[in-house]
């Protein structure tokens, strides 16, 4: 789970021939986490009127960069995280710049602690993730209060944090399945 390249390189004599179709397939599979995240961010900005839709935008993005940073950072490199953050900034209306910073911090933590995180239980990883989510929501609320120069209700931030932490297990299962199938370049 931790190894970035799960399949060892084959000998050149037994490696499949590098056809353009294979190269393209591998390329798309590698870019799939980033492309999917951008698609989800744009999809969730459409006016469906679903309760919690705006909160899900940031929640899904945080879960995604955490997962891919922890398991397969090669499939979502740092510039891709930055790009996702910029798209999230454009299609959400939170305090400017915070989404990019939050995504990069989550990614950095998950990526640099990935060996340690792989050795502890899922519940502990979930708790660490929850801690960072709470910090992000507090920062978001603080920035909005400073901008409005008023004491705003922290309830939207609490809802954001609860939703993001609640989404984590189901999204992890989904991403794990994705990393084994459609987003696995070794399956090309």
């Amino acid at each position: 789970m931790v190894a970035e390249r799960s399949t060892p390189s084959l000998h050149s004599a037994v490696e499949p021939k590098q056809t353009w179709r294979l190269v393209l397939d591998r390329m798309f599979r590698s870019a799939m986490p980033t492309l999917l995240l951008i698609a989800v961010i744009i999809f969730l900005s459409a006016p469906f009127g679903v309760p919690g839709q705006e909160e899900m935008q940031l929640g899904v993005a945080l879960c995604a960069v955490w997962f891919w940073g922890q398991t397969r950072p090669r499939l979502m490199p740092t510039p891709a995280v930055f790009l996702c953050g910029i798209v999230l900034e454009l299609y959400s209306f939170g305090p400017p710049g915070l989404a990019v910073l939050a995504l990069l911090v989550f990614y950095g933590v998950a990526r640099h602690w990935r060996y340690a995180l792989a050795q502890v239980s899922f519940i502990l990883v979930w708790l660490i993730f929850a801690l960072f989510v709470i910090l992000t929501c507090c920062l978001q609320w603080l920035l909005v209060c400073i901008h409005a120069f008023a004491f705003l209700s922290p309830m939207p931030g609490v809802f954001q944090a609860v939703l993001t932490v609640g989404l984590y297990p189901s999204l992890m299962a989904l991403f794990s399945w994705g990393s084994r199938t459609f987003a696995n370049p070794d399956c090309a």
């Binding site: 900005s45 459409a46 006016p47 009127g49 705006e54 909160e55 959400s92 209306f93 939170g94 978001q140 609320w141 909005v144 409005a148 705003l152 939207p156 931030g157 954001q160």
Partner: peptide, 8 residues
Amino acid sequence: TRDDGGLY
């Protein structure tokens, strides 16, 4: 077109 208020 869309609700663009954000959280706050």
